[in-house]
Simulated assay, not measured.
Amino acid sequence: VEAIGIDETSRKGHNYITVVADLVEHDVINVTAGKDSSTVKRFVDDFTAHNGVPGYVRLVTCDMSLGFRKGIRECLPNAERIVDKFHVVKHANEAVDKVRKAEGRSNGLLKRTKYLWLRNESGLGELQLETKRALMKQRLKTGRACQMRETLQDIYETSRTSGEAWVRLHRLCSWMMHSRLEPMKDLARMIRRHWNEILAYFTHPYTNAVLEGVNSVIQNVKRRARGFRNMDYFATMIYLTCGKLDLKAVTAYPPPHNPPQTANSLFF
Rank of each mutant, 00 (worst) to 15 (best):
V221C: 10
G34L: 06
A21E: 04
N93S: 11
P54T: 04
G71I: 01
A95V: 14
A134E: 10
A263G: 03
V40K: 00
F47N: 03
P77V: 07
V53Y: 12
P255S: 12
K98S: 11
S174T: 14
A249T: 02
A95Y: 13
P77D: 02
S106V: 02
T241K: 15
A188S: 13
R133Q: 15
C173R: 05
D45T: 15
E157K: 14
W175I: 00
W166L: 12
T39C: 10
V221R: 14
R100F: 06
F267C: 04
P255E: 14
P77S: 02
R119A: 15
L211F: 08
G71V: 04
G5H: 04
A263Y: 13
L187A: 01
T207M: 09
V250G: 08
L152P: 02
Q138L: 10
T18H: 04
E80S: 13
A188L: 15
L181I: 14
Y206R: 09
K244S: 04
T207I: 11
N120H: 14
G104E: 00
V99C: 07
P259K: 11
A188G: 12
R224Q: 13
N230R: 11
M176S: 09
P260F: 10
T151A: 09
G104Q: 03
N93V: 04
T151G: 00
K137F: 08
D7V: 14
T151V: 07
R160Q: 10
M231G: 04
R73E: 01
I238D: 03
D154S: 15
S216R: 13
V20T: 09
L66I: 10
H257L: 10
W166A: 03
E121N: 09
L211D: 00
M136K: 08
G104A: 02
Q147W: 11
D45S: 15
S122I: 13
R168Y: 02
T32K: 03
V83R: 07
A134T: 11
L110Y: 05
Y206I: 05
R171M: 06
G213W: 07
G13D: 07
E94P: 06
Y233K: 15
N196T: 12
E130G: 07
K141D: 09
H170V: 03
L76W: 00
G125V: 08
F86D: 00
N78C: 04
S38D: 06
L169N: 02
H87Y: 15
